[in-house]
Amino acid sequence: MNTSAIVQTQNLTKKHGSINSVNKVDLYVQEGEIYGFLGPNGAGKTTTLKMLLGLIKPSEGTINIFGESLNKRRSTILQRTGSLIESPSYYGHLTGLENMRVMQRLRNVPDKNIHEVLRIVRLENQKDKKAEQYSLGMKQRLGIAMALLAFPKLLILDEPTNGLDPAGIGEIRELIKSLPARYGITVLLSSHMLSEIDQIATSVGIISDGNLLFQGSMESLRKKGRSAIRLKTGDNTKAEELLLTQGYSLTKGGSRLEFDNLADREVAEINRLLVEHYIPVTRIEEQKKSLEDIFLELTGKERSL
C-alpha cells in the first residue's frame, strides 16, 4: 500500500434495500491534496463520506485512513479527522462560543484554537449569539469552525459552501485552498457543483449513481477535454465525400464538419486536399470541450449542474 494514501477504500459498497447507493468505490486520496468528490444529487457522496467516518456501516468493502483500517483503529483515526456532514451540527440553545467549547472539551485543544478558527470563519463578532439565531450561512461557518478546531490531519467536508453567499463562498474557498500548505491538512470535500471543484480541487473523483466514474488529478480530467476541429467549406457535401474517401473519420457532418483528435499536420493536410479540389475553406476552428461537457458525458446526465 502506498504510504502517502490518506484515504483508501476498496470495493466500498452500501446497499439500501436492493439498490447499491454506493457501488464498489475505490477512493484514493493522497496526502496534501484537496480532493473534490463530485457528483449530481443522490449520487452517493454523503453516503460514502458517512462510511468513512463510521457513521454508517459499509455493506461491503474496506476503508483505510492514515494507512490503518477504520474497523480496527476507529478511535485513533477519528481523533485526527475533522468533519462536517450534510447540514451543520450545533446546539441551538448554546451560543456559538459555547458550541466551540463543547468541541474543545472533546478535542482537548487550547483556547487559542477557538479564537483562531472563529477568526478564520469570521464569526468572532457573532460568537455570543445563540446558534439557533444564526443564519444558514453562519451555521455553516460554525460547522466549518468546529470541524477545523483541532486542525486535524484530515478534513472531510460535505458540501461546505452550502448556504453561503457568493462572498462567503469565495472566502471559504480561499480558506480551504490554504489549508494543505498552512496546516498540513488533507481535504476531502464533496460538491455537486463542477465549477466549485474546478476552482478548489487538485484531485477529483466523479461519482454518479453510486459508481466512481473517474478519479485522478484535475489536470488529467482537463486533458480529457480533447479538442475537436471544425471546418466550414463552400461545399460541405462534396468535402465530406472527398475526406471520407481519403480515410478521415468525421464525427459530425452537415453545416460543420467535425473531427476528433487531429494532429496539426493532419489539419494542414485536410486543408490542402480541399483547396486542391477547389473546395473553398471558409473556417477552421478549434473547439475545446468544457469540463461541463466532460462531466455530463461521464455521468450521462443532461441535467444542469
Partner: peptide, 17 residues
C-alpha cells in the same frame, strides 16, 4: 432532544465519542 434538533449525534460520533 437537543441532539436530534441540531443533528449533533453525528457530530459527536464522528468526533470519537
Amino acid at each position: 432532544d437537543m441532539e436530534h434538533k441540531g443533528a449533533t449525534w453525528k457530530l459527536l460520533v464522528a468526533t470519537n465519542v
